[in-house]
């Protein structure tokens, strides 16, 4: 599903290396944690997977397409098969939960009927069926992240990328969010999570890729944050 070979990147000519010598493969249906200190290159790597950034060197294949050669007009279609979840939720705060989720469907040209059928279903899945009409700014952080998750899965993407999804949440809520991600994964969606949350990584016993200083230092099946160092 994702093939990264010899990926190298830096932001400008005089800047330091952001990523170098990155190699890994991720198969369909995997659940992978990307861990490591801030500035290790996790977010850059995620941005590469949605082609917000193109690596300066190396090969990055997602769904069999070489992203270093993907024409710009194809990028929106790539992104429709990837659900994004962010630490700061990135929701339209003045709009309702329903609108925020529907928004991602409208982009793909879905009809109002499909939207009315699909949105309550995902709201149920993230455990907020009664919040459809609530404005996002009136929801708690945990609820907002659930809406973010619902938005990420509404178009049934093949892969979910979550960049620090629990970074702004308390431990209990974090665990709930991770559980939803795990449920999504069990249903067949590939899930990539960048996190600092040691406890969750250790508890879930999933594959762990550790980045440090722009290099991949550990890639371990059923790994643990603690096991990294």
């Amino acid at each position: 599903m994702i093939e990264a070979r010899e990926i190298y990147h830096r932001y400008d000519q005089n800047g330091g290396d952001v990523l170098s010598d990155i190699n890994f493969m991720i198969d369909r249906g995997e659940f992978v944690f990307f861990v490591g200190p801030s500035g290790a290159g996790k977010t850059t790597l995620f941005k590469m997977i949605i082609q917000e950034i193109v690596p300066r060197r190396g090969l990055l294949k997602v769904f069999g397409q070489d992203l270093t050669r993907l024409p710009r007009y194809r990028v929106p279609y790539l992104r429709r098969s990837i659900g994004m979840v962010f630490q700061d939720f990135r929701l339209l705060e003045e709009r309702t939960a329903f609108d925020n989720i529907a928004f991602a469907m409208r982009v793909t040209g879905a009809s109002n009927r499909e939207i009315r059928r699909q949105v309550p279903y995902v709201l149920e899945l993230v455990g907020l069926p009664e919040k459809a009409g609530a404005r996002v700014c009136d929801l708690s952080g945990g609820e907002q992240q659930r809406i973010g998750l619902a938005r990420a899965i509404i178009n049934r993407p093949a892969m979910i990328i979550a960049d620090e999804p629990t970074g702004n949440l308390d431990p209990d809520t974090s665990y709930e969010i991770m559980n939803i991600l795990r449920t999504i994964n069990i249903r067949g969606t590939t899930v990539l999570v960048a996190t600092h949350n040691r406890e969750i990584v250790d508890r879930l016993q999933k594959r762990v890729i550790h980045l440090e200083g722009g290099r991949l230092t550990v890639d371990e099946e059923k790994g643990a944050y603690a096991g990294v160092r």
Binding site: P76, R90, L92, V107, R151
Partner: peptide, 16 residues
Amino acid sequence: RREIMIMKYVGATNWF
């Protein structure tokens, strides 16, 4: 701009 950024992330085409 925030709305536009979100649109781009969920796969909106530039024309949309």
